[in-house]
Computed example of a mutant assay.
Amino acid sequence: MMGPMEVVTTGRVREAVPPAATDLVGALFVAEAARLVSLARFFVDDRTAAEDLVQEAFIRLARSSHRIRDEDRAAAYLRSIVINLARDHNRRGLVSLRHRPPAVPDEPSAEETASVRESRREVVEALRALPRRQRDCVALRYYLELGIDEIASTLGVSPNSVKTHLTRGLRSLAAQLEERR
């Protein structure tokens, strides 16, 4: 411990973070990190990349934690950072995919091996094929089990927009999965 202020090194600048911000980020890490890595895996194929995205999200949250007025909304803010970082990662990846060999699949853990089934793989592939907003809404609603208002807050859209995207996304998922059978 460095005294009343933690120092966070972000690569270029060493920034002082107030203790309250450190406590908030630490509490969110304990409560949300594993779920956020799982969420990021819906958007990126590589587990290591998903873990890196979540780590970067926590660094960004720590840097901007002084701007958070409502600590109850910090988790939604953190989820939106992860989703945006995953989008950026995929955008950059589209260009580099043309110039590199395919990634070696992750080695599944014992827990993943026990729970992975063909149907789950099909659902994830169908989810990834959805348009961006539909995919975001469906993943947040049915994977993280967030309410409509929490999803709206995370994505910065209205609750009615979330409901519309959910309805369309579920309809599209059902059609895609029916085609595969």
Rank of each mutant, 00 (worst) to 15 (best):
R91G: 00
R121N: 05
P131E: 13
R67L: 15
A62G: 04
T9L: 07
D45G: 09
V162Y: 11
R79I: 08
A20F: 01
E51Y: 00
L94T: 06
L155T: 08
E145V: 09
H165R: 01
V7R: 15
R47P: 00
A57E: 07
V123F: 14
A57M: 08
A33G: 01
V7Q: 10
T154G: 00
E179L: 09
F43T: 09
R92H: 11
L144A: 08
A103R: 14
R73K: 15
G11L: 12
E32K: 14
A34E: 08
A76C: 10
P18N: 12
R73P: 05
L36K: 10
V54P: 05
P4A: 04
A20C: 00
P159H: 02
A40F: 09
V44E: 01
T113N: 00
K163T: 13
R67T: 09
T167G: 08
E112A: 14
D70S: 10
H66A: 12
E71W: 04
R79G: 04
R87C: 00
V82M: 08
T113M: 12
A103G: 05
T10P: 02
L78E: 04
D106H: 10
H99F: 15
L173F: 11
I148S: 02
I81R: 12
R67F: 06
R73F: 04
V82P: 08
E107L: 01
E6A: 15
A62I: 03
R98I: 07
L140I: 07
S153D: 14
A16D: 02
I59H: 03
D88R: 10
L36M: 07
L61F: 10
S65R: 03
E32Q: 15
E178N: 04
E56T: 13
V82E: 04
V95T: 10
L170W: 01
V124I: 15
R60I: 03
Q134V: 10
E125L: 11
A57S: 11
S161D: 02
E6F: 13
R47K: 13
A21N: 10
D149K: 11
A20Y: 05
H89C: 00
R79S: 04
T10I: 14
S172T: 15
A139L: 03
G11A: 06
E107F: 02
Y142L: 12
V8L: 15
P108A: 01
L127C: 13
C137K: 03
P4M: 11
A34F: 00
K163Y: 03
S115F: 11
R133D: 14
R168T: 06
A20K: 11
R120M: 12
I81K: 06
S115C: 00
S119M: 08
G147M: 08
E178A: 14
A20W: 00
A62T: 09
R47V: 12
E71T: 12
